[in-house]
C-alpha cells in the first residue's frame, strides 16, 4: 500500500530547486489555505507532467518504429501510459524511501550526539 502526498509530489515536480527546498521544508507550518493551494497546483502539475511524459515516450517510440526498431501495437498508447505511471510511481517511492532514510539518519545522529 503506497500513500503519496503533496510533499512527496513536490520532490518530483519540475520546480526551481531553491523553491522546492523551501516549500518542502516549510510545508507543515503553512496555513491550510497555503497547503490547499499547493496541493491543487501540485496535482495539476503532476498530471501535466504525466501527460507530457507520455507524449515524449510516444514520439520516441514512433521514431524507433519508423527506424524499424519495434512493432506498432494496437494498444501502444495505453501501454505507454501504464509504463509512464509506473515509472513515476517508482520515482516517488524512491524519493519517499530516501526521505525516510534521511529522517532515520538524522534521528540517529541526534541520538549519538546526545549520548
Amino acid at each position: 500500500m503506497n500513500k503519496f502526498n503533496t510533499k512527496q509530489l513536490l520532490q518530483i515536480l519540475p520546480l526551481d530547486e531553491n523553491l522546492r527546498k523551501k516549500v518542502v521544508t516549510n510545508f507543515d507550518s503553512f496555513s491550510e489555505d497555503q497547503k490547499l493551494a499547493l496541493k491543487k497546483l501540485s496535482w495539476i502539475m503532476f498530471f501535466e507532467l504525466y501527460t507530457n511524459k507520455i507524449k515524449e515516450e510516444f514520439e520516441k517510440t514512433l521514431y524507433e518504429i519508423s527506424q524499424e526498431k519495434g512493432d506498432l501495437k494496437a494498444n501502444l498508447y495505453q501501454e505507454i501510459e501504464e509504463n509512464v505511471l509506473n515509472k513515476l510511481k517508482q520515482i516517488l517511492l524512491q524519493k519517499a524511501d530516501k526521505k525516510a532514510v534521511e529522517k532515520i539518519r538524522a534521528e540517529l545522529k541526534k541520538q549519538v550526539e546526545l549520548s
Binding site: L19, K22, D33, I44
Partner: peptide, 27 residues
C-alpha cells in the same frame, strides 16, 4: 486545459493576516 486550471485559481493581491503570519519564502 490543465495548465489553465492553476491559472483559473485567481488569487487576490494582498495577503490575509493568516497568510502574513505564516512562514513566508522571501526569495
Amino acid at each position: 486545459d490543465r495548465n489553465s486550471t492553476a491559472i483559473a485559481d485567481r488569487m487576490p493581491d494582498s495577503p490575509t493576516p493568516a497568510e502574513a503570519a505564516s512562514p513566508v519564502l522571501t526569495e
